[in-house]
Structure formats: C-alpha cells, structure tokens
Simulated assay, not measured.
Amino acid sequence: MEQLTIVKIGGNVIDNSENLHRFLQDFTALSGKKILVHGGGKIATELGTSLGVEAKMVEGRRITDIETLRVVTMVYAGLINKNMVAQLQSKACNAIGLTGADGNIITAVKRPVKTIDYGFVGDLDEASVSSETLTSLLEAGLVPVLCAITHDGDGQLLNTNADTIASAVAVAMSAVYDTRLVYCFEKKGVLRDVEDESSLVPEIKAGDFEGLKEQGVVSGGMIPKLHNAFEAIKNGVKMVYIGKADELPQVNTNDFGTRLIS
C-alpha cells in the first residue's frame, strides 16, 4: 500500500506568516501523497469580534450561530484556505483548496440539541467522507487542502471541528493507502505541564486517555483532539502523532511529538 500523510495544522502557526511559510515548506517536502487539513479559529474569533460577533466556546468547541457561521465560512473557506493554496503553489506543490461541499467530499449531519445547542455544527460518521473523490484528486497529482466547513447535502453549510475532519478523512483513506495522521500545533505535543516544553509525554496508549483527563494533563481543546486520534487508530489508521509544526520533518524518523497507539 502506498503511503498517505494527512497533516492537520492549527493554532498560532496559521496566525503567524513566518511560521506558516516555514510549515508549508516542510509540508511540501514530505514525500509521497498528502492532504492538508486546517482550522483557523483564532483568526475567525478576531474577525468576528471586529464585526461584533463574539466567540462562544464549550469544552474547546465553538458554538456556531448563523452570524458565526458566516464568519467562519469567510475565514476558513476563503481567507485562510486560498492563502495557503497560493503559498503552496509558490513552492511547486499543486494544491487544491476545498470545503466539504466541493465535489461532495464531506457531508455532515447537524449536531442534535442535547444539553447544549451547538448551532450550525456538523458531525461526521463513517460514510461522511468520499474517499473515491479524494483518491482521484491524489492520483491526479493534486494535494487537497481541506478547511473546517462541511455541508449537509440539503444546501446548508456546517462548521465542523478540523481535528474531527482530519480523523474522519484518515479513517476513510486508510482503506486505500497506508495512512498516518499528524496533528501540528504550537506545542511539542501532549505536555504534563503546558508551560514546560521538556514535560513531553512521548507516547499515550488508548487505555491511558481517561486517566490523563482526570489528572488534568489532557484538558480543553486537547480532549477532542485525542478522542479523534484514538478513534482513527481504532478504525485502521496506522499511526497518529501530535507535535510542534516546526518539527514536522522529524515525523519521517518517528521522532515527532507524542505518538498515540492502541
């Protein structure tokens, strides 16, 4: 099976043009087929604030009312996505920027209201991702750049957690390629003390996840990130890494951030 690397980028890397330039250079240099998935929550929050739309978060997840949906669509699918694609083209990486609606690549279901109404937020299942369309793009020599916007098939765009998209895409593509999933952000990986870069947890097993949550080692936005990662491993993804964006080349030597294993 040919190798496919799916990289999710987020956090301060997207906000800082110098960091983003370096990351995209390293991403371009990765050998084999690859897919880039990105968020951009901080920029969406800043633009929303300037437009009078305040961000509302619960357990690291954004509440998406109709005004927020407009903002995140503009930022994720427009500003950030096309900027990344243009930069990748400048590095001779033939990228194509996409939402889930383009080519019907990712369909989602609006999250049902339970204790919290998340608004226009899309949840994914095992049938959400069109591996056939993504495979045809990859085989044509294109590098898909997927943003955190999906659709419901009935004309409604939905905001979907980019970590969830990366995990679902990795699971779908693992039937076609030998797939590894890499989450990149501004920290070295999962840290026992978020202020201490030397407190890296090099490896986490699925069985240790609940304990680390109870200890507070894993909290906030890291909870859905790890949940998605372990779901991916359970469903056929060979390896998942979480680490610092500017250390991406080290993924080839298996010496990158925190490794997640079953």
Results as ranks from 00 to 15, higher is better:
residue 1 M to L: 01
residue 5 T to C: 02
residue 5 T to H: 05
residue 9 I to A: 12
residue 13 V to W: 06
residue 19 N to V: 00
residue 19 N to A: 11
residue 24 L to C: 14
residue 26 D to V: 00
residue 27 F to R: 13
residue 29 A to E: 12
residue 32 G to W: 09
residue 35 I to E: 12
residue 37 V to N: 03
residue 38 H to E: 03
residue 38 H to M: 04
residue 39 G to D: 02
residue 41 G to Q: 02
residue 43 I to Q: 09
residue 51 L to V: 11
residue 52 G to K: 01
residue 52 G to Q: 04
residue 54 E to D: 03
residue 59 E to V: 03
residue 60 G to K: 13
residue 60 G to F: 04
residue 61 R to Q: 15
residue 63 I to W: 06
residue 64 T to D: 05
residue 65 D to P: 12
residue 67 E to T: 10
residue 69 L to K: 14
residue 72 V to W: 05
residue 73 T to Q: 11
residue 75 V to Y: 08
residue 80 I to E: 00
residue 81 N to G: 01
residue 82 K to S: 06
residue 86 A to E: 12
residue 90 S to C: 00
residue 93 C to T: 13
residue 95 A to Q: 04
residue 97 G to E: 01
residue 99 T to S: 14
residue 106 I to T: 03
residue 106 I to V: 15
residue 110 K to W: 10
residue 111 R to K: 15
residue 111 R to S: 14
residue 122 G to A: 13
residue 122 G to P: 09
residue 124 L to C: 07
residue 125 D to W: 02
residue 126 E to F: 05
residue 127 A to I: 02
residue 127 A to C: 10
residue 130 S to V: 08
residue 131 S to E: 06
residue 132 E to Y: 09
residue 132 E to C: 02
residue 135 T to M: 03
residue 137 L to R: 07
residue 143 V to F: 05
residue 144 P to T: 09
residue 148 A to P: 14
residue 150 T to M: 07
residue 150 T to K: 00
residue 155 G to H: 07
residue 156 Q to M: 14
residue 156 Q to V: 10
residue 159 N to R: 10
residue 173 M to S: 03
residue 176 V to D: 00
residue 180 R to F: 00
residue 185 F to L: 04
residue 188 K to Y: 05
residue 189 G to S: 09
residue 192 R to D: 04
residue 196 D to M: 11
residue 196 D to S: 13
residue 199 S to Q: 04
residue 203 E to G: 02
residue 205 K to V: 01
residue 211 G to S: 11
residue 213 K to R: 15
residue 218 V to L: 11
residue 221 G to Y: 08
residue 223 I to A: 03
residue 224 P to T: 09
residue 226 L to N: 07
residue 227 H to N: 14
residue 239 M to V: 15
residue 239 M to Q: 14
residue 240 V to I: 13
residue 240 V to T: 05
residue 256 F to Y: 13
residue 261 I to T: 15
